[in-house]
Amino acid sequence: MKIKLNSRNAIASLFIALGLVLSACSGAGVDEGASTDTSGSTTEETATEAVAAECGEWNIAMHAWVGYTAGAQVLTNVGEELGCTINQVKLDEAGVTYDAIEAGSIDVIVEDWGGGRWQEWADRGQLVEVGENGNVGLIGMFVPAWMAEEYPDITDAANLNKYAELFETSESGGKGAWYEGPPGYTTIGEKMIAAGDLNFQVISTGSEAALVELFTQAVENKTAALGYFYEPHNLFGALDLVRINWPENDWSAPEEADGSTDYPKSPLIKIASKNLIDSGDPFATVFQNWTWTNADQNQIAADIEAGTDPAVAAQKWIDANRATVDGWLG
């Protein structure tokens, strides 16, 4: 028998063979096949599969900052203990994630900083505001600590103009450089400058990495820098930054701000999909009950920053705070 085996026939025959192999062992995937393997990981897998019937499959939005990762990972670990399937989906915050909730591909936002910017989506019904998660966010303008030591009165916003030229760079057009927060964060720098008649120029940073770079260089090289930052953030463990003080805050939505007062303390908000809330699933209960503190979050964030795997760091916290966690189960 003569079979002409040029490349086209070869590929065709491979696909036929592939089909045969696949159909021959359909149903006998690795779960079964691997039971000959004594690693034990498969038995664990079937154990969780068995419980999984009671608890559904849910997608947590993973935003980029470490503090967020800490909260999301704790929820993931607790959810998996309950037998849920929790998927972590990396994506941009705000509009992007709200859209994803509407599309059904995200069920949980662990912490949202923007007071009410999701209203349009909530009005349409698929996005549900679940309440505060216990963390309190505080935005502000910061300088490296060495500047506060050298010029003690710099921490009062009223004195900023006196020092404006210290902050001048080739980027800031003859004024002091005012490094504004990344897009997506609540920022009123332009209003603050206008209201205080400050001799500063807003520079848009674009990412947290850029701000971290700015402050790292400012602390290490003792250069001047005035920039936007926020707590809770694990950077405060590594770098010494000092907050500039404005008169006490009197606004909550940025469009109400006139720029003469400081940023508000904002309780961070949990958001879920209507699907999750309506499901009555154990994970929905956990998410609705879950609250914790800035200190809790920082503890895990510091471990992650030090190189610990997020899942391990979160488990360490869970094991140490078992009573709190049990309280969430309802």
């Binding site: 509009g95 897009p183 997506g184 940073t205």
Partner: peptide
């Protein structure tokens, strides 16, 4: 994409628009 690292300009506004609904 320099808008990500402090270069400002149009690239930054594209990012701003995708993360702040009122700036879309």
């Amino acid at each position: 994409i320099g808008g990500f690292v402090g270069a400002g300009g149009l690239g930054y506004l594209v990012l701003l628009g995708s993360s702040k609904p009122e700036m879309q």
